[in-house]
Design a protein around this nucleic acid. Structure first.
Lengths: 212, 212
DNA sequence: TAGATTGTTAATCGATTAACAATC
DNA sequence: TAGATTGTTAATCGATTAACAATC
C-alpha cells in the first residue's frame, strides 16, 4: 500500500469538497466498508483531517462514533441529499458536434439525477442519436417554453455561443453550462458555469511547473 | 445592451480568476479595444471591481492609467506568461473512447501551449485517429520513459482508472488529469486534477435549486 | 474642473487550523 | 487502560471589501 496520495488541487470550501468525499465514500461502500473515519477520508484525499471532520460533522444526520467513525450508508445518503443528487433535473444541449455527442450519450448523469432531454443543432433535419432526439435549433425556444427545462448546455463554437445563450434565456433557462471558451453576456440572475477544458489542462501544467 | 451579467460561480482566489480575465480581455482585443479598465472587466464578469483591480495590479507589468485603464495588449501578454500559456507542454491520453476521442482532437489546446502527443487504448492494434497515433496500452510505460512526457490524461472507465494511473506513474508522469469518477491512490508528489463532469452539472443544478 | 479610475492601506469577513475535553 | 476518534471552541490565517488620496 502506498504512503499518501498527492494533494488534490482546487477543493475550496465545504461545498466544493463534498463531491470528492461522496466519490471516495462510494468507493469504500463498494469495497464493503461499513464505517469510515474522517481521518481515513482525509488520508485518501490528502487533505487536512480536521477539515474533513468538521465538514462531515456539519452535514451528517447521525453523529460520528469516537474511535469508529461514521456509518458509510448514512453518510452517503446525507451527502446525496445535501448535494441534490436525489433531485431529478433536466437540461438541453445545444451544439451536437464531437463534444456535444459525448455529453448527450454520457451515461454518468443519471446517477446524479440528471437527464439531457434533447439536443439541438444547426442542421435543419431532426434526427435520433442513440435514444436522444436532436432537433433543429429553430425549435429550441418553443421547446423550452413548452417543457420548462431550466438548464442549458452550450457546446457550440465560441463564435455562436452568445447567440445560443440568448435563445436559452429567451426560452426561460435559468442556468447555463458553457463549454465555449468565451464570456457570455447575460441578464442578471442567470447562473453560468464556464468550463474551459483547455484552460483547465493549462492550469494543471502551470501548477506542475510551479512546483519544480 | 444588457444591464449586468449573472454571477459566475466558483472563482476563488486570484489564480482561479485569472483565466476568466484572460478570456474576457481576449474578447475585447478581438473587438479592437485598446484599453480596458478593471471596472469594465468586473462588470462583464459580474464580480467585485476592487478585486479585479487588485488582481490586475498584482500581475500587470505596466501600471494602469487612471481614468483609462490597462493596455489590452500588455495585459494579455502578462496573463499569458503568468498562466504559463506561453510554455509548451505535452500530455498523453489513455482511453480512446468517446471522450478520449474528443480530447485527442480538440483544437483548443494549442492556444494554451499544450499538445496531446499520443493516445493509448486497450485495443492491441496501433492506429491513426486524425493526425494522432493511438498505441496499445502495453507501449505506454516505454513510451513515457523514452519521451519524458509528464502529464497523463485518464479517460478510461472508473474500474480501470487506478491501473492506468499506476502505469502513468511508473512511466514517470508527474501530473494526472482524471476524468474517471473515482479517487486515485497515488504516491505523494503526484499532482491530480479530478474532472467529474456529471458532478459539475449536478453542482450547477443544486446551486440553481438553492437560489429559489 | 468634475468624473473615472488607479494603487494601496486598513478593516472586515470567512475559512482553515490548532487545541482539548469527551467518548468508545 | 491506552489509543483512536469525535465535536466544538478558540486562534490563526488569508482573502475580500472598504476607504481614500493621487492621477489623468
Amino acid at each position: 500500500m502506498r504512503s499518501r496520495q498527492s494533494s488534490l488541487i482546487i477543493l475550496k470550501s465545504t461545498l466544493g469538497r463534498l463531491p470528492s468525499y461522496y466519490c471516495e465514500i462510494e468507493n469504500r461502500a463498494a469495497r464493503g466498508e461499513e464505517f469510515v473515519s474522517a481521518t481515513a477520508i482525509a488520508e485518501s484525499l490528502s487533505i487536512n483531517p480536521i477539515q474533513v471532520r468538521k465538514d462531515l460533522a456539519s452535514i451528517s444526520s447521525e453523529p460520528g462514533r469516537p474511535n469508529v467513525g461514521f456509518r458509510v450508508k448514512t453518510l452517503l445518503e446525507d451527502l446525496k441529499v445535501y448535494l441534490g443528487y436525489d433531485q431529478y433535473d433536466e437540461a438541453v444541449l445545444v451544439g451536437v458536434g464531437a463534444l456535444g455527442h459525448v455529453l448527450l450519450h454520457y451515461g454518468g448523469f443519471a446517477k446524479y439525477g440528471l437527464d439531457i432531454v434533447a439536443g439541438f443543432d444547426s442542421e435543419p433535419k431532426e434526427k435520433k442519436v442513440g435514444d436522444k432526439t436532436v432537433l433543429p435549433i429553430a425549435k429550441l425556444v418553443p421547446f423550452l417554453k413548452r417543457t420548462h427545462v431550466n438548464i442549458g448546455i452550450i457546446t457550440v463554437p465560441a463564435s455562436e455561443a452568445q447567440g445560443v445563450a440568448d435563445m436559452l434565456v429567451a426560452g426561460g433557462v435559468r442556468a447555463i453550462w458553457n463549454f465555449a471558451p468565451t464570456t457570455l453576456n447575460l441578464p442578471a440572475g442567470i447562473l453560468v458555469k464556464n468550463e474551459n477544458l483547455a484552460a483547465s489542462l493549462a492550469a494543471l501544467s502551470a501548477e506542475l511547473r510551479r512546483r519544480r
